[in-house]
């Protein structure tokens, strides 16, 4: 389990995260929801130290890191070993082929042999249905394909958790479906995931737990079923604002 405790973060005097504590259970999918600018991405990124909160801590079984104290290179390494991030704009390395995008980190960081890394990468590429594209460059792939490759890249590091920051927001519905199918598959296999998303149907389908954040404050933290079936007035507003079809909530 990952536990974030009392996280505070501000940018230029503006509070982005206000004393947020939340657990992300292992083997489960937690979805973070909230309006734009609510601080969800900041919260997700602080797990991987891409954002450094001013105070609070991140806790794993047997490991605790206090954000307010300097974190040594060794500690940030072991922290990042546990998680891998998938980004909204996938952020593949444009100068590397699909295969090398996936194998470079395992070879450089984990010291895997080329043969070992490539074997694993090819398995992953096959798993996301993109076998045969190994030698292409990212610019020769569609957005959906790139995002699927970036999921492979994250998985290749064997992280305990995959953190996904609006993984499908930059994709059209058809490409989005390709990516969501893979995430659903991972979810079924018991991969621990934390997902920031705006896709409510997907959130409802895959998540075991919902965290709802607004203006840097945690508004809801609990069961997915409860979130959609017994929404508070504010959550109801949010849900009806997000889906054009008012019947979606009643499904």
């Amino acid at each position: 389990m990952i536990s974030l405790k009392h996280i505070n973060k501000s940018y230029e005097g503006k509070t982005v995260l206000n004393d947020i504590s939340v657990d992300f259970p292992a083997g489960k999918t937690t979805v973070i929801l909230g309006p734009s600018g609510s601080g969800k991405s900041t919260l997700l990124r602080s797990i991987d130290l891409l954002v450094r909160p001013e105070s609070g801590s991140v806790e794993f079984p047997n490991l605790t890191y206090d954000y307010s104290k300097p974190i040594s290179k060794k500690d940030s390494f072991s922290l990042r070993q546990k998680t891998s991030m998938v980004f909204q704009n996938w952020n593949l390395f444009p100068n590397l082929t699909v295969l090398k995008n996936i194998t470079t980190a395992p070879m450089t960081v984990l010291g895997q042999s080329k043969a070992e890394a490539e074997k694993h990468a090819k398995e992953l590429i096959k798993r996301v249905g993109l076998a045969g594209l190994e030698e292409r460059y990212p610019s020769q792939l569609s957005g959906g394909q790139q995002q699927r490759i970036s999921i492979c890249r994250a998985l290749a590091m064997n992280p305990e958790y995959i953190l996904l920051d609006e993984p499908t927001s930059a994709l059209d519905p058809e490409l989005e479906t390709q990516v969501l199918r893979i995430l659903e598959e991972l979810c079924k296999q018991g991969q621990s995931m934390v997902i920031v998303t705006h896709n409510m149907d997907f959130a409802r389908l895959v998540s075991d737990k919902i965290v709802f954040i607004e203006d840097g404050t945690k508004v809801y933290d609990g069961d997915t079923k409860d979130f959609f079936e017994n929404p508070t007035p504010r959550i109801k507003d949010f849900l009806s604002g997000i889906s054009i079809d008012p019947t979606v909530e009643e499904k």
């Binding site: 990124r45 991987d48 891409l50 998680t83 980004f87 952020n91 450089t108 960081v109 890249r153």
Partner: peptide, 17 residues
């Protein structure tokens, strides 16, 4: 960001990416 999440060091990120 992508390199750091994969645990590349600053030097490795510079060299490879």
């Amino acid at each position: 960001d992508a390199a750091y999440t994969l645990n590349f060091s600053t030097t490795q990120t510079l060299n490879k990416i």
